[in-house]
Structure formats: structure tokens, C-alpha cells
Computed example of a mutant assay.
Amino acid sequence: MEITIILSSPRSGSSWLSRVVRCIPDHSVFTHNTYTTQFLYSLYPMKSVNPFCDDGITRSGLVDSLLKPWRVRRVRSYIESRAAGNPTVLISPTLSNFLPLLKAAFPDARYVHFQRNPLDTIASMKKFLAKNDCGGFIDRYRAHAYGGRIFATRSASIHMLHRLRWMRLIHRGYLGVRPSGFQDAARYSLVDFLSWYYTANQRDILNGLADIPDSRQVAIHYEKLVEHYDDEVAKLLEFMIGDQEKPEIPHSHDGVRSGAVGRSKELFDTSELEQIHSFLLANAPQRVLQSYGIATPLSIDDERWIKQETI
């Protein structure tokens, strides 16, 4: 089965990239909006709903070891039955938590590591966390009633489930996946927590890719996709399709805002940026930091990081 798995941190632009790859003809694409995420969580129900756990499955107990063959078969049958023989793309930030399972189910899969500037990613996480600091079931249901009763009920139910999963966080709201070690960071300040979250998620991804041959993995960057769309999509198609006849480059720029690059300048002040930068330098994988030149101490005059003061 030809399958490409696209991994990213939350708020890295995966929703936009999913719209791009859905434009590729004769491909089946599974995203967080196609119930694939919920299906994966359903394979680990006790862990998924437990507010005292994280979502990582790298540590396996006796029950997990016994159930692993069944879970592998379930994942393969779920994807194969819906892909209808087409080349397949899985894309969702949630996938990083299920890499051991996916690697067992699809041993020949290709992997795309989709990255975005850490500061912009963390800034977007901050906005999204605040956005999901909202009301209960009824409020969520009313806000999504435009999609019909089933859609509104599903959205409201998922909202309440995430609130339960994230209840130990001292900050209101939620993002989605809980990286390995989530509970150890649940009492961090907001800036430290977001810095930790990005770092832990990227470590989960890179640890999962460590044993994948270079020929079966590639890095794609959000900023390059924004600025050099045709070149980056051609690079992605070359990786996914290889020597086969390639389709016309899909055009899907909808939802991309010019201000999305450099957003950290708007949401963090100087001291917060210095705090995030120091945390990343001390803890984040160098492979990620070097892609964005974050390998030296922050300069107070560095225009890439510092918020522009308004007069």
C-alpha cells in the first residue's frame, strides 16, 4: 500500500497542507476532520480519556503488548477499506502520538516532517489555547449549529472530552494531543508550558523518525510553502509519487494569511521571547532549531524575535 504520513506540531499549518494534498487527484487523504483521529484514540480509550495520562504510546505494558497485533490489524483495515486502492496520505498533528502503531501497520510508509518557525508555532498555540477557553456543551453546540444537529453534537462532545483531558492544566483551554511527559509540565507557567509543548512534540516526532531511512523521509517548511509554493509542492509530489507521471501542481492558497509568518512579534513581548528562546535552546532538538537559525543566544536587537512597539 502506497502511504505517506505527514507529521507536524499543532498550529504548524497542517490544515492548510491537508487542503493542498486533497487537491492531488487519485489520492485518498485522511485528516483530523475525517474521524481518523477519533478512530486512533478509540484504540486506547482508557488512556485517551484519562486526565492523568499523556497520549504517548511508546511505553507498552502487558495489556498493550497483547493488544498490539489487533490494533495493527484494525488500523490497516480501517485505512485500506476507505482508501479504495488509491495512494494514501495521513495528515494530522495527532499522528505523532501513534507513530509506533502506524510504523507497525505500514512498515514501508513515507514520512513528511512539516515544520513551521517555532516562535510562530508557539504564538499560534497561545491564540488557539485562548480560543478554546470557552463555554460548555450548550455554548459549543449553538456555535456549531450551522452544520446541523449531528455536526453540532459531535463538536460539542469533542469539546467536552478535550476539556476533561486537559483539566489538570493550570491554564484554561486545550490544543489537542498531549505529548509524552504532559503531566510533568501541567503546572508550568503559560510561556514555559507552550515552549515545553512544542519541544516535547518535536522530540516525539524525531524519535519516531530516527529509524526511518533518509530515502523515506523529507522535511517541508511552512515558510517556504508560503513564499515558494510551486517549488515546495513540486518537491512534495516528487517525494510522494517518485518517477510516476506527476499531476498538475494543485493550487490551494485559501486560508493562508500573510501575517502568519512572523506572528510571534505581535503576541509576545521582549521578555517572553527571551524566555521562549532560552527554553528552546536548552531543550528543543537542534535539528529543528538549526532549520530556523535558532542556535545562538537571542540578540536584543534581533528583528526576527522582538515585538515591534506601537507609538
Rank of each mutant, 00 (worst) to 15 (best):
I91Y: 06
V177E: 15
L280R: 08
I158T: 04
I220D: 01
S124D: 01
L206R: 11
A234F: 04
L40E: 04
D254I: 15
N283D: 03
T31P: 07
A185V: 07
I276A: 08
D120M: 06
C134V: 08
L161S: 03
D302C: 03
P297A: 06
R19K: 11
T94S: 13
F193C: 10
I212W: 00
R165W: 02
A260Q: 01
P118S: 07
W166H: 07
W70G: 00
D54P: 07
K127P: 06
K68L: 13
T310K: 13
A83E: 09
I91F: 09
Y41W: 15
L169W: 08
G56L: 04
H32Q: 12
D192Q: 10
S155D: 10
S65V: 00
K47E: 10
L40R: 06
Y35K: 13
D254W: 13
L194F: 12
A156N: 02
G262L: 05
K47D: 05
R165S: 00
K47M: 11
E303S: 09
W196I: 11
K103E: 06
D211I: 03
R287D: 10
N283L: 07
I79H: 05
S180D: 07
A186Q: 11
S215F: 05
D133N: 15
S278E: 04
D55N: 03
I138V: 14
D133Q: 15
P69V: 02
G293W: 08
S271F: 04
I249A: 03
I205D: 00
F30Q: 05
N33P: 02
R149A: 14
E2S: 14
M46Y: 10
N207C: 14
Y174R: 06
M46P: 00
S264A: 13
G85I: 01
S180Y: 05
Q183F: 00
V288E: 04
A123D: 10
L99D: 10
H162D: 12
D55Q: 07
D231L: 12
V112K: 04
V20F: 02
P51S: 14
R140W: 09
A282R: 15
S18R: 10
I150N: 10
V29T: 07
S77N: 09
Y197T: 01
L90Y: 05
V191I: 11
G293R: 09
L17C: 12
A260N: 07
L206W: 05
H32M: 08
E245Q: 14
V288R: 04
R187T: 15
S48W: 11
V29D: 07
K265N: 06
W196T: 13
